[in-house]
Design a protein around this nucleic acid. Sequence first.
DNA 1: TTGTATGCGTTATCAG
DNA 2: CTGATAACGCATACAA
Lengths: 348, 348
Amino acid sequence: MNKPTKDAATPDSRRPATHPVVTMEMVGRIAGVSQVTVSRALSDPSKVSPATLKKVQDAIAVTGFVPNALAGALASRRSKLVSTLLPSITNITYNSMVKTFCEEMRAHGYQIMLSECGFDPADEEAAIMTHLSRRPDAMLLVGTRHTASARRMLLAAGIPVVEVWDVTETPIDICVGFSHVEAGKAAARFAFEAGYSRAACATANDERALRRKDAFRAEFQALTGTEVAVAQFESEATLGMGRAGLARLLETEGFKSGVVFCSSDLIAHGVLLEATSRGLAIPSTVAVIGFGDQGFAPDTSPPLTSVRVDRGALGASAAQYILGRLEHGRSAPIVTDVGFEIVRRESA
Amino acid sequence: MNKPTKDAATPDSRRPATHPVVTMEMVGRIAGVSQVTVSRALSDPSKVSPATLKKVQDAIAVTGFVPNALAGALASRRSKLVSTLLPSITNITYNSMVKTFCEEMRAHGYQIMLSECGFDPADEEAAIMTHLSRRPDAMLLVGTRHTASARRMLLAAGIPVVEVWDVTETPIDICVGFSHVEAGKAAARFAFEAGYSRAACATANDERALRRKDAFRAEFQALTGTEVAVAQFESEATLGMGRAGLARLLETEGFKSGVVFCSSDLIAHGVLLEATSRGLAIPSTVAVIGFGDQGFAPDTSPPLTSVRVDRGALGASAAQYILGRLEHGRSAPIVTDVGFEIVRRESA
DNA sequence: TTGTATGCGTTATCAG
DNA sequence: CTGATAACGCATACAA
């Protein structure tokens, strides 16, 4: 459509070794003070006379000095860095939690180092080691499944570690989340009480999603005595997965009508679309329950019933616990269950 | 629904100063070699005898030693860190680009420092400074609008800088993207050639989205002589914004029928849903063109026509250019236009 | 208020 | 192949 063009010539040749720049030493020389004074002018201006402060600031402006946080962290043994490891950045599930967490930490002078670590604990372990080598002051992890080696490293690092999005009896340090088993059960009870006598599940291959699915099945079968069909996918949740999921349930799993419990709102939305495309009435023929109560849930057709988790609060408490340990040495709770609630709209 | 529970008592009291851990010095003492030998065993095992190598590895295993990359970077003047600044992490627009970029860089031993910097250049400037203080070996930025101060700092840092997602005559260093003006024009020509004589735009308040919108309007008006109505929103793109957008166009902007050019696929999807809800035929009454050709575009009802950008290729070339500068000192093109194409499905 | 000395844990440069 | 020794740029005591 638009012809790709290339090129031009490179203007300056870059030096082989990186990180040249200005140092406090140089700034000090220009300002006519020592390196320490520059350091103080930056970290606590009140400890420097107004006159020299100005000289230093001028020198900084002139040179374009940017402090070397590497050296600072090495000397002070505090990096002001907080590592955040997510299974997937493309997954909207954790978005608002991460956003809140980052804002909260940044407001307190901490910088976030975000990385994607995949869903495999072994890959997570590698990511954890890489991050620990940067000496973060704290670390945020998703979930409670980690390799033994990872746990060891984390404990040895001696920094606050928060595991979010799940709860466990054996946290590494701080744990803020909710019970996925309870969530699955609650969805089943909701479906039962809403009068559905048949149910199915559409789920991605995520460890926590599978726990919810299993809990839902067990509970729903216990309540109604009917089997719960399952459409499970290997990749990450997509809209298309929801469409394919309902198709599979209808065509090969013997599902005729009832409620479909989905592992995410995205999948649920796909189920809604597929049902609509097939002319199936919602919720009378096919009802849908999502998970996550994402921002778009009220805007689907019909609006989506979903299991709501206060992700913002989750990120905020994670930050608060870390800050508590970090700044005030405050002793924090080990496990916090933030719970969940089912938001009923028109899809079920 | 599920009663939130709290608490327990904190097990160990954490030391005030962070970053304790093991050093090469200690590892060396245990292995019976000097600190330097440990360093060599790690960075280039071939420079160490098999015997001592094993001793060192054993000592590392015993102590759980994790190298201090801060010290390493300070000494070597190379951090193996690459900064990536995104306007928004919750925005799926950049997802696959970032994913590809990260994987490529990680495969070459670089770690990504991802941060959200907002859409305001002033906020971006602050983020750039914070990141530069960590002495990254390279930096990836979205867009070409930066404060003068930011440009200065970037140039002074002397590291490879890539601006993606747009093209410009005046790149800071490397630039990989496409022309948003051309994209808007192309969409207008496509709409015109498809036979639509009326058009409207639904857009988020993003600088590049607005450039596309303006180009679309100008071109479509030039081709057809009819005005193009606009529904513009202040916040980030959402599904609900698409619904509200079509509603506004129909109810207050005098739009009766025609094609709606949207600033993102998410908004476009919302327009589709709203049109369907209102019983408007797609594409005969309301046609829709999205932007981005996200993964879900083929799964909407009807499948979404969209402007496709090869985001994976975009991330990959950004990585390649950086690696070229970093590893081989290779001179790279300044500006690369990766173009775009319009993918026609059933929505328009 | 300001400066001096010392150390943070590596890598780089030489010697041996 | 191995080991001293000197940076790296800053912060922390301590001294003036």
